[in-house]
Structure formats: C-alpha cells, structure tokens
Design a binder for these strands. Sequence first.
DNA 1: GAGGTTACTTTACGCTGTAAGGAGTTGCAA
DNA 2: TTGCAACTCCTTACAGCGTAAAGTAACCTC
Lengths: 259, 259
Amino acid sequence: MVVYAGQGDPRRSIELLWRAGAVPERRPGPRPALSVDAIVDAGIAVADEAGMAALSMRAVGERLGRTAMALYTYVPGKNELVDLMYDRAMAELPTSYDLGDGWRAAATAWANAMWEFYGRHPWVLQVSQARPVLGPHEFAVIESLAAVVVTTGLPARRLRGIVGAINYFVRGAAQALAEARAARTATGEGDEEWWYARSAVLLEVEPDLARRFPVLHLLEGDREPVDPELPYLENDAVENFRGGLEVLLDGVAAAVARR
Amino acid sequence: MVVYAGQGDPRRSIELLWRAGAVPERRPGPRPALSVDAIVDAGIAVADEAGMAALSMRAVGERLGRTAMALYTYVPGKNELVDLMYDRAMAELPTSYDLGDGWRAAATAWANAMWEFYGRHPWVLQVSQARPVLGPHEFAVIESLAAVVVTTGLPARRLRGIVGAINYFVRGAAQALAEARAARTATGEGDEEWWYARSAVLLEVEPDLARRFPVLHLLEGDREPVDPELPYLENDAVENFRGGLEVLLDGVAAAVARR
DNA sequence: GAGGTTACTTTACGCTGTAAGGAGTTGCAA
DNA sequence: TTGCAACTCCTTACAGCGTAAAGTAACCTC
C-alpha cells in the first residue's frame, strides 16, 4: 500500500505545512487538549513502530486517548496528515553540509544522511513521490543538496537534472534496503532462509533461469560483503547504493571537468 | 495510496507469475469461464482507465461480469493480482536493444522505452518497489538493461550499481511526470493555472521563499521548453529526465574510460 | 446414476475514512 | 449576569474495502 498524498484543498494543506507551531490565539470554546504537532508526532510514532499499513485515523487517535474523529478538528483528513508527517520527519535532517572537502564529499554526506533517514523512517518511502514538493523541510532537504551541487559551477539546467538524479537514486536504493529488512522481520525467518526459500521456488518453477537471463546471472558473481555483520540482502543494498552513487558522482565530475 | 505487493504465499505467487498461459488440464467441475490471464487483463484495464485507487476486486469482477469473490478461484488475493498485473504490463517492453551504436545509445533507448511505458501505465509507479523482483517480464526488463551495460566491460560490482542507478532514476523521473499529469487531470484546471494557484498560496504563506531557499530559487532560472506543445510541469519533468540521464551515463562513461 | 470436485454466488465480518449531528466548555457582548 | 456563538470532542452511521464461510449448480470420473 502506497499512500497518495497532496490531494486535498491546497490552501489548507500549505497553511498547515508552513504555519506549524504558530501561536494559537485564544478563542471561544473549550481549550484544545491536542495540537497539530501532537497529532503529527503520534502519527509518526505509529508509522515508525507498526508501518504505514497500520497508520489509521483510529490508531493515531487511540494513541492520544481520543477518537478518530477528534483529529478532524485539527487536520482536514488522512492525506494531509501524511503530508505533515512526511515534512515533519524531514526536519531531523541537516540543512547544510560542510563543503570544506569539496562538493563530492558533501554530496556523499547528503546521500548518506538520506540513506540513514530512510532507514529510520522506512514508511516515508511509501508516501508517493508522484506529487509536488511543498513542505518547508522538504524544501530544505532539496535546498541542502542544491547548495552542494551548485558549487560545481555548472549551469542551472544541468544542476536540476543532477539534483533530481541523486534524489531519485538515493530513494530508490533505500527502497531496496527497506524491502530487505521487511523480508527479514515480516516472515520471522532469518534473512538467508527467506532468500533461499524464494530462490529455491524460483529455480524449481524455472530451472533454466540462468540460461534465460544470462547477464543477470553473470552479475550475481563477484560479491564481497561490505559489512560481514549485515545480512546478505542488506549487504547487497548497501553495496548497490555506494556503487551507484560513485557512478552518479563520476558523471557530475565529468560534467565539471568538461566545463 | 501505494499498493504493497509481494506479501502472500511466495510459492503460489511465483507459480502464478511464471506459469502464466500454461495449459489448463481438464478437471471435474464446471468449465472455468475466466482465467488468470483474463483477470489480469481486466485489472490492467481498470488501472489504466481509472487509476490504482479505483482498482478493487469488485471493480475487476464487475468488468468480467462476475462478483469479486469469483476472482479468488484463480488468484489468491489482491496483492498477488497486483503482482501479476505489474509483471504482465512489463511484457510489452522490448527484451533487447540494438547495440550497433554503442552502449550509450542502447542505454538511452532503454530509458526512453521505460519512460514511455510509465507514461502509458502510471499505476505501475504506485506498486511499491520495496519488494523483490520476481516475475519473468520484470526479470527480462532488468536483463535487457544489464545486457546493454555489460558491454562496457566493467566489473560485476560496478555493473550492479549502474543498473540500479539507471533503473531507480528513470522510475523517479517518471513519477515526476505522473504527478504533473495527475495535477492536470485531477483538478480539471489547466496545468498552468494549477501551478500558479499552488505557488501563489505558497508565496502568500511564506513571502520570503526566495530568500529562505536561495539555491532552489536560482535553479528555477534558465528554462527553455523542450517541447512547446507540452504543458509547463511536464516540460520540466522531461527536461530533468533527459538531463539527469546524461549525467548518469557520463558517469558510466567515466568509469569505462578509467578502466 | 452416484459421488466428488470445481466455479461461482450470497452473505457476513471487521476494517477503513469521514459525514452528520449532538453534548459540553469557553470567551465575549449585551 | 446572561445569552450566544464558537469551539472541542463524542457517538452514530455509511459506503466502501478485502476476504472468510457456506451454499448452489455444473461437470468429470467411476
């Protein structure tokens, strides 16, 4: 299940996203016991602990000792809540990176920070990216990357492509890691058993796998664990992340050298 | 909403994925009027026409003149149906690319084919990628890319990163396009009005936007429409796709040159 | 023809997001 | 001080979801 965000009334959504923590002026009626912030925090807590599939208005309400409907006083609906959770989670990311060792080191630091962030909040990867970037922290995250790559001196057109490529790549690679971890915890089996079970069935159903997909078979070879502590699939994900990032940044370096 | 696939009984799922179109042996009981293939086709039709959110077992059943429960005779559940739809849709992609003009041209052709594919079936982008690759056509798609980049002669470790990076990037860029199109059709407004409405609210709520995010503001400049026929946001997505792909392939070229 | 197997239907359950309306609390104006 | 409007939060309700369970009718094999 992917949660499609950014659908509601845009004015209301944007105001909520950018006015977070604004002073609530005293108004008639009972004193509000909750707040948008508290609800967003509870939502993040639910998603962190039980995953995006477990995030329901009832679950969030229950965590706050309220009913689901109580949330609607603060938040227009679930889509908007997810938007707010998404943006708020990104608040924990750095807003700038040290450029002392050059753009490449800084870009790598950005990618690593994102990688670890997605590892802490894998539910973020289930918020559909097919939507506009709108929250302040989301802006800040992209700005922090843009501020790094702009020091290459490349023209704006190139830079937009580069920012997009790095962003998409890190997100995609992080999804592979999330899957590897989900496989481990969901099935209860150890990581390797799970993998072998899958591939065993695959080989049973299609014994000619290696012949049908020779290049993929070839690429399976030559593996060395990046970190022997990590289970097999996760090691894979880390290796692909690091390797892919190197290639990507090589491309940026090539563009810089050509300038 | 993102549909999380690949959760059910792995044996059953894999058999369905790889045994598609197998001869159904005659057995007691009424002659089956449906088939897995027919159900998957109906599912794809529903998703193509009305989007992933409209894909329900009842909707698919109705399209076939059956109830929702009739589908469960053929398919274990909705997750598995989505898996099958995902893999079947990919059957329409080429399984190999002409290497006559070198790996770079072929890799670009692969990316373009994927780009157009995602444009035809945007619901595919809502199938969570955080899951194992398992279907034959999904395999074939990755194999076709791997077969291209393997001709660079780079070692397997590098190649895995490259295949991942290209794949993630194209998918991410395609999501931006899907969002741009969804914005246009969902709101009913023309594309530009929609965009201006959003950014107007944004500027109203945060007038200092340009000062808070100076680099992003800077990057907004220097735009030339790739195709003046296309609406603003979609032009943007195309430009970022092409530009990002160039950078990525530059990185591959750099690795090749260094070899 | 009997019996077992299968395709498909109906019904039902628990879950979801959220609309509608009501109860009770509070600030402000008369 | 009283009334009213605004407000928070609750209960109830509804339509939709995936799918479990049980029933009916069609068909093959013996």
